[in-house]
Every structure is written in structure tokens, then in C-alpha cells.
Amino acid sequence: MKIAIPADRPDLDARVQNKLGAAPYLLVIDSDDLSFEILDSSLLASGPLAGLQALSLVLDKGATVILVGYMSPNIIGPLQKNGIEVVTSVSGSAKEAVLRYKRGGFGVAENNGHTSIPKSSINFTVRFSEAWTKTAKQYLSLVPVLTAVILLVGLFKAFLPEKLLLALFSGNLIQDTFAGALVGSLLTGNPINSYVIGETLIELGVDLFGVAAMMLTWVSVWLIQMPVEISILGLRFALIRNVAAFLVAIPSSIFVVWLYRGGM
């Protein structure tokens, strides 16, 4: 999670400043490892526009929380509606503020000062309606890619018969394990189907190594659904997760069968 803090110096020992637009530096700190990005505020316009420019800058950097001395309630309201948490009356060093936030140390008192809107005072119906709208928007934004993937699954199942995939198995342990992992990555659906196909493969003479690999990747590697994973969690995440799951499945399936057969 990224936390934005207006600061007087470009480091974590900097003091938290009162206003976003008047601080010499803006720090966008990753709360997990305390790595941070420094944004130079000297390039911002002066006057009332500076605050809005600073805000836009930190939101562009992915900040979802702002720890600051003061912010106008007129700005806090719309930010909160859009899921950005603002904590005011924050003082001390930037590092202390982030650590305190992580501990949940900013209770109602800080968020309840004269500058911010206390969450409890917002009518529940209003909050529910806002949360509903936000959730619906998040869901609707996924409709196109979900539709495409569901259509793709149908296409894949209709035009790529399972018999064709069975032809990938040759009788060689390593090749069959790899082929099993590949088949499992391509096929989708209830894992029970993988048990049925697995049993059929064994009847056709495929070794258990390939079957175990297919069953493992069936439930962990999703090539057809990857466009959705990419659009939501990013290309890097989707690639690393699927490749890692595929590569881990191959030795694991060999080990599963080895243990099953009583080891050596």
C-alpha cells in the first residue's frame, strides 16, 4: 500500500507538513518495505492550485492513503468516496507516521478532528449506497474481459477435443510429465474432470507422472483465463504466478508419484 506524506526533507526522518500543496517534498512511501519515491513540489504552481496539483501527483503515483497535518473537508469527502483514506492532524516524522498508521494507531481522534469528516457520522445508508456504486463500477469495468474469457473457454472446449491433447503423451517420463502439465494448464473446469481424464489416461497407458502433473496444473495454472488475471493483477504478476506454478508442478508431480510408489 502506498502512503503519501507532505515532508520538509526528501527522507523518512522528514517532518510531516501541515499542507500537501505547501510542502517542499511529497513522499510516496510503500508501507510494506518503507521504500519511497520523492516528488519535488517546487515545480508545482503556487497558490490554491498547488494543493490540487500535489494531490493529483500523489494519486498518480498510486497512493491510497494520505497522512497530513491539515486538509479541507471539501477535498476529504470526495477522496473518501473514491476509496482514498485521509488522516489529518498527523505530526512527527514521516517514518513514525507510516509505522503508526500500520499499527492502526490513528484512531478516531485523529481522523475526527476539525478538518476531516468522521466516518461514523456519515449516514450508513449513504455509505452503503457509495460502497454499492463503487463495487458495481469495479465489477462493470471487468465485464468486457470476463465476457471474452467465458466465450474463449467455450470456443476452446468445442474446437480442441481432449483426444487431441492425449496425443501429446509419448511414454517418456519427463516428456509425459511436461505434456501432462501442459494439458492441465490448457483445460479448465471442475477438478473432478481432471480425475476422470486422469483415469482415462492411465487406462490408455500414460504413466501416473503425467497424470499427476495434469491434475496439479489443472488447479493452479490457468492459461485460458490469463487475460482476466493480467487485466486485474497485471502482466508481471500473472506471468510469474503461472510460470512458477507450472515449473513447481513438474518436479512436485514426480515427487508425488515417487512417494506414492514407496520411494526408492
Partner: peptide, 22 residues
């Protein structure tokens, strides 16, 4: 054995993503 290895694979995969996700 398969179920135990599913848990093992899941943890290893998550650890790899955690390390390389960046």
C-alpha cells in the same frame, strides 16, 4: 500425498511471486 503437495506447491508459488512480483 497429492493434497499435501498441493499445499507445498501453493506456498512455493506464492513465495516466488512475493519475491519476484516487485
Amino acid at each position: 500425498i497429492f493434497t499435501i503437495f498441493c499445499i507445498f506447491c501453493a506456498l512455493v508459488t506464492a513465495a516466488i511471486v512475493g519475491m519476484l512480483g516487485g
